[in-house]
Amino acid sequence: MKENKYDEPGFFGKYSQMPRSLGGLEAAGEWADFRALLPELDGRRVLDLGCGFGWHCRYAREQGARSVVGIDLSANMLERARAMTSDPQIEYRQLAVEEIDFSEGEFDVVISSLALHYVERFDAICRKVYHCLAPGGTFVLSVEHPIFTALPAQDWHYGPQGEKLHWPVDRYHEEGPRQARFLDHDVVKYHRTMAALVNAIIEAGFRLRKLSELEPTQEMLQRNPAWADEVRRPMFLLAAAGKD
C-alpha cells in the first residue's frame, strides 16, 4: 500500500496553507530554476507525475502544450486540481507514480516536481519515463537533495542559544527509507545518493542535460530572507534529461 498522507485531513489541511499551495508556482522558491530546465512546450504532449494541485499542468497549457495528463495518488489533490482547472485538454488521473504504464512514445515531455523522493524505486520510474517518452523528449524533475534527505530529522544542529551551527550529514551511503517530520506529521521519504540519482537517469537511457542545486539569488534573498539557509546547504536537486 503506497503511503498517501495527502488524503489525511490534518496533513492536507496544513499542506493547503503552505505558500506554494496558496500562491502557486511563483510562490515556490525552486520554480525559476525548474522553469529554466523545461523545453519548448508549444504543441507538446505533457505528463506530470505527482501533479498535486495541477499548477504545472495549467502552466504547460498556458505555454501551448497540446495536451496534459496529470497523475496523483491523492484524491484530495485531484479534487482541488479539477476545481482550479477549466481546460478539456488537461486530464487528471488518480494513480500512483509507481503504477504508470503508458504506451511507448506517448508523451513529448514528462515533468515531476518534488514527488519522486516519496518513491522507493527511482530507477524503475526512470525506465518507465524513458519508455513513454517519444524520441527527442525531455524529462525534468525536482527532488529533495541527498544532503537534505540523509538524516531523518532533516534539521540543523543547534547551539546553546538556538543558533543554527551546521547541517549534519550522516549515513549518507545508507540508501533507503527515512521517517521524516513534515508539517507536524511523520512521512516516509527515500534517501538516495547523488550518484544513485544521476546513474539511474543515465542507465535508463537518458542523456543528462543539466543539473541544478538551487543556489539562491540575491533577488530571492531580498524577497525572502529565510532563503539564506539554502546558501549554507542545498535543499533541492533539479535535473533535465533527454531521450535521443
Rank of each mutant, 00 (worst) to 15 (best):
T217Q: 04
L214V: 14
V97L: 13
S21C: 15
E106V: 02
G162L: 07
V109F: 03
I125E: 01
G10Q: 11
P225V: 06
Q89V: 04
A115F: 02
W31K: 03
Y6C: 08
V188I: 14
D123S: 15
P19N: 11
F34N: 00
W31G: 00
L197N: 09
D170A: 15
I100R: 13
S112P: 11
A83G: 12
G136N: 12
E163I: 03
P9I: 08
F236R: 03
Q161M: 08
T193P: 07
K128R: 15
Y92C: 02
A65M: 08
N224D: 15
L151Q: 12
W156F: 13
P225N: 11
V187W: 04
L49P: 02
H166D: 01
L221Y: 02
L151H: 02
E98W: 09
L49I: 09
R171H: 15
A241S: 10
T217Y: 00
D42F: 04
P177K: 06
L78G: 06
H145L: 06
D87A: 10
C126T: 02
E203K: 10
L214A: 11
L197Q: 03
N76D: 15
L95P: 06
D186W: 04
Q222I: 08
P9V: 06
A204C: 06
H117L: 05
A75F: 07
Y130N: 07
R80H: 09
S113Y: 01
H157C: 11
Y172N: 15
Q94N: 14
W167T: 06
G205T: 09
E62D: 15
R209M: 05
N224I: 05
R127D: 07
N4Y: 09
W55C: 02
A240P: 00
G205E: 14
M1Y: 08
D42K: 11
E106C: 05
I201T: 15
G64M: 08
D42T: 05
E215L: 10
Q63H: 09
G13P: 01
W31V: 00
T217L: 03
C126M: 11
G205A: 14
Q179V: 14
E104L: 07
R232Q: 13
R121G: 07
I71Q: 06
A153V: 09
F236P: 02
R178K: 11
T193S: 12
L237N: 01
E40S: 11
G23H: 05
A75K: 10
I111V: 14
R207M: 04
M194R: 06
A75M: 10
F206L: 12
D72N: 08
N199M: 12
E40D: 14
R209Q: 12
R207E: 11
C132F: 04
D108P: 02
A196C: 10
G137F: 03
Q179M: 13
G64Q: 09
Y172G: 15
S142W: 03
D33F: 07
S67K: 09
V169C: 12
L37W: 00
L38H: 02
V231P: 00
L38G: 01
G176E: 10
G13Y: 10
G24E: 07
Q94K: 15
K14Y: 05
E8P: 05
A81G: 12
Y130R: 09
H166T: 07
A36H: 01
H191V: 06
F12D: 14
L238V: 02
G10M: 07
D87T: 03
E219I: 11
Q161T: 05
A195V: 13
I100A: 12
V110E: 05
Y190A: 06
